[in-house]
């Protein structure tokens, strides 16, 4: 083994370590990641062909009876939703009027983009999924993701034609919430289990009872306000401890939803600057 070979391998190892350090401390390697995503895109598209074909086959081989039933259900549901939408229009108009009276900023309806889940991260210690919309569709890092039942998570990595979503149940994830009934604020932290969130720093005296709906409070600046996040299922006051142990079950179907919504709401998904706390002092 010639000597220069050893120098070369140490050179690459040092380069790799420097890259890793940079990637964990500076944001500007994000563009390298994005560009490499273009190289990977064809292989990823081809890899998804079997599952796409499977879906298509499943859909096209559904029986006439099933389709009729599904159609009936959807029509009924559509009617109910339209009814609610009519009421919503009136309520929204009234809300805007009231806000104008309060001279608060007008809340515009959020624009959404529909996407499908294409893969799930196999690592049991991280709750991440891959979706089939990416930077080319306007997806950005920090974008909130919903399913039909509530908030599901946020985008943490964008590739040209796909993106990675961190779910609210991941143990590295926290979301500011408030109780829909009375506005009590709390922070819901993922536990790593798909069906459980934990509310932290809830005083023993706080008015939270099982069954309460928790909605996003929008205070972090990352998620839009007012989307359902979870339902409280257990409140435990431990004598001698200053905080209550509160667990909640996510409203979104984290393990079942196939179609998700990406929200483009005004001001959401903004990452607070890292020196926010220093500048506040």
């Amino acid at each position: 083994m010639p000597n220069y070979q050893r120098q070369r391998v140490s050179g690459i190892v040092i380069l790799a370590l420097a890259l890793m350090w940079l990637d964990s401390h500076a944001p500007w390697l994000q563009s390298v990641r994005y560009m490499t995503g273009y190289l990977l895109a064809p292989a990823q598209q081809v890899a998804l062909v079997p599952s796409v074909l499977g879906n298509w086959f499943g859909e096209s081989s559904a029986s006439r009876q099933e389709l009729t039933n599904e159609n009936k259900q959807l029509t009924a549901r559509n009617l109910v939703l339209e009814l609610r939408a009519q009421r919503l229009a009136a309520l929204e108009a009234e809300n805007i009027e009231l806000r104008e009276l309060l001279s608060a900023s007008e809340q515009v309806d959020d624009r959404v983009l529909v996407t499908a889940v294409v893969a799930v991260d196999p690592d049991p210690f991280s709750q991440q999924i891959l979706i089939n919309k990416g930077g080319e569709d306007g997806v950005f890092i920090g974008q909130p993701v919903l399913d039909a039942y509530g908030l599901l998570g946020q985008v943490i990595d964008v590739m040209p034609y796909s993106a990675r979503v961190l779910m609210i149940a991941d143990s590295n994830h926290a979301i500011p919430v408030q109780v829909n009934r009375n506005g009590v604020r709390a922070i819901a932290v993922g536990t790593g289990a798909l069906n459980e969130l934990e509310l932290i720093y809830v005083p023993n005296t706080a008015d939270i009872v099982p069954g309460d709906l928790l909605v996003s409070s929008g205070l972090g600046g990352r998620y839009p306000r007012g989307y359902p996040v979870a339902t409280v299922n257990k409140v435990e006051n431990i004598p001698g401890k200053s905080f209550a142990a509160v667990t909640a079950e996510p409203s979104a179907h984290l393990d079942r939803s196939r179609h998700l919504l990406l929200v483009f709401s005004h001001g959401s998904g903004q990452v607070p600057p890292a020196d926010l706390w220093q500048s506040a002092e």
Partner: peptide
């Protein structure tokens, strides 16, 4: 190791450089 490592890093969403390191070794 450099191009393939970077592509693997993006594929697995690991820190850029991690697979460069392992591939080089």
């Amino acid at each position: 190791a450099i191009p393939l490592g970077l592509m693997l890093d993006v594929e697995h969403n690991s820190l850029l450089g991690m697979h460069v390191l392992t591939l080089a070794v």
